[in-house]
Nucleic acid binder design. Structure first.
Length: 430
RNA sequence: GCGGCUAUAGUUCAGUGGCAGAACGCCGGUCUGUGGCACCGGAUGUCGUGGGUUCGACCCCCACUAGCCGCCCCA
């Protein structure tokens, strides 16, 4: 019989790596809490229409990367429903915002999420079909200040802080403004016109992109094309006064708190809902998938899926990529499984039962304890203890009778006799 | 979805159309209440899966699967 394996693009996370995942998630929760964000957990699958209307029918994500299936109708009279595993989480959050009328309180909603997302792409380093995102959204009625450039700057400053607390250095923040829903079509039109003459001189990929998705030409990495692409119309010149001023204020607030960024007029993103501020944090250690996180403002998303006017800004970080980045950092000790505080070695099977009692006492005192086996020879107990713990506690006939156990510290080699009731304080890490 | 590279022991990797290898790790012993060191010994295995060529395939050919790199796109 053939072996059943994890399906393509999915994987199991095992210790000690899960230690690092927990560390990342705990750090994110801690930082988000300081910025007064609350957690939201949305379903893993949604009505397909949510993504079609929210993310955009023409995007790659929706047009070819979604896991979609037809759910059975419950009754003859009922139509079957198309469902989709969420390819991203912003649409789900906005759907919940609308569904529970979160805007009616008149306040800004600040929500974060941590969870799996699904896209059917070819797996690669840092890219999986089930991947994990940590993201947050600030959304609310305009009267609550949801359109304010200060919100954009606050989110970006929070991200810089989060990366710093995670110990991730060497990232780059690139920003751009893609303008309002009105600005962008005008720009795309101008770009298309300019490309009629320029495109034939560009690389093969650009010639195709010029027709299918002109904005993508700006992403081209072919060296020879760069000068010509730089000479194309820039979106900055197509922004209306409002968008221009908005972006200037975002930059000013970032300058004030010392968050470094570069403005990349060629930064375009693949989801239709973005307006005005867009950004990407990249890291060179990631290879082709160099985006650590990305996000932006989505002032029209709520209305696009049938909700009230509810401008917002948010981001999603690729947790898988944070892990990769941290693992590549030289200082990272998080892959060390860590040693237990003590290894209890029952000497002889007669000591088995009482050794579990001893382990229970120490564990209740908060110590991390490994319990050996009384059938082991002493030599084996020492070898095992040395691999698993900082100290070994010998628990034989004498110790059980006298209540005084033998403790040997593997680091110092020092061996002492310790009364059982003092054991936990002796073993405690200093 | 497209192109390239790869798949051999728990791990990292050698290897040859004719007996399946090394290092580390693992197990046992020297050593029956004292580990790390040393020495001696041992087992590593569907050579990714399925077909084909051949007297004979881990090796050559085809398909599939998975991973990596790039494209596309994105987190």
């Amino acid at each position: 019989m053939s072996q059943i394996k994890a399906v393509r693009g999915t994987r199991d996370l095992l210790p000690p790596e899960t230690e690092l995942w927990n560390h990342i998630e705990a750090t994110a929760r801690r930082v988000f809490a300081r910025y007064a964000f609350g957690e939201i957990r949305t379903p893993i699958f949604e009505d397909t229409q949510l993504f079609a209307r929210g993310v955009g029918e023409e995007t790659d994500i929706v047009s070819k990367e979604m896991y979609t299936w037809e759910d059975r109708a419950r009754a003859q009279s009922e139509k079957a429903q198309m469902l989709t595993l969420r390819p991203e989480n912003t649409a789900g959050v906005v759907r919940a915002y609308i569904e529970y009328k979160l805007g009616d309180a008149g306040l800004l909603q600040k929500l974060y999420y941590i969870g799996p997302q699904f896209r059917r792409e070819r797996p690669q380093k840092g890219r999986y079909r089930q991947f994990f995102q940590i993201g947050a959204e600030v959304i609310g009625p305009p009267s609550a200040g949801s359109e304010s450039p200060l919100r954009d700057a606050e989110v970006l400053e929070m991200l810089a802080t989060l990366l710093e607390e995670l110990g991730i250095t060497g990232w780059t923040l690139e920003m751009n403004s893609v303008g309002s829903a009105m600005d962008r079509p005008r720009y795309v039109q101008a770009l298309r016109e300019a490309l009629v003459d320029v495109a034939p001189t560009l690389c093969i990929d650009c010639q195709r992109r010029a027709v299918t998705n002109p904005l993508r030409v700006l992403d081209c990495k072919v060296r020879e094309d760069q000068e010509k692409i730089d000479a194309l119309p820039k979106i900055a010149d197509f922004l209306d006064e409002g968008s221009r001023a908005h972006f200037a204020q975002v930059c000013a607030a970032l300058d004030a708190c010392g968050v470094l960024y570069t403005i990349n007029p060629r930064l375009v993103r693949g989801l239709d809902y973005y307006t005005r501020t867009t950004f990407e944090f990249t890291h060179s250690g990631l290879g082709a998938q160099n985006a650590l996180l990305g996000g932006g403002r989505y002032d029209g998303l709520s209305e696009a899926i049938g909700g009230p006017k509810a401008p917002g800004i948010g981001f999603a970080m690729g947790a898988d990529r944070l892990v990769l980045t941290l693992q590549a950092l030289p200082s990272q000790a998080a892959n060390d499984p860590g040693l237990a505080d003590a290894y209890i070695a029952p000497l002889g099977e007669a000591q088995q039962a009482e050794s579990l009692v001893l382990a229970r006492e120490l564990r209740r005192a908060g110590l991390r304890v490994e319990l050996g086996d009384g059938s082991f020879r002493l030599k084996k107990s020492f070898e095992m203890g040395n691999k698993l713990a900082r100290a070994i506690v010998l628990f034989g006939e004498d110790e059980a009778r006298s209540g005084i156990v033998t403790v040997k510290n593997f680091q110092t080699g020092e061996q002492t006799k310790v009364p059982r009731n003092e054991l936990s304080s002796v073993l405690r890490r200093d």
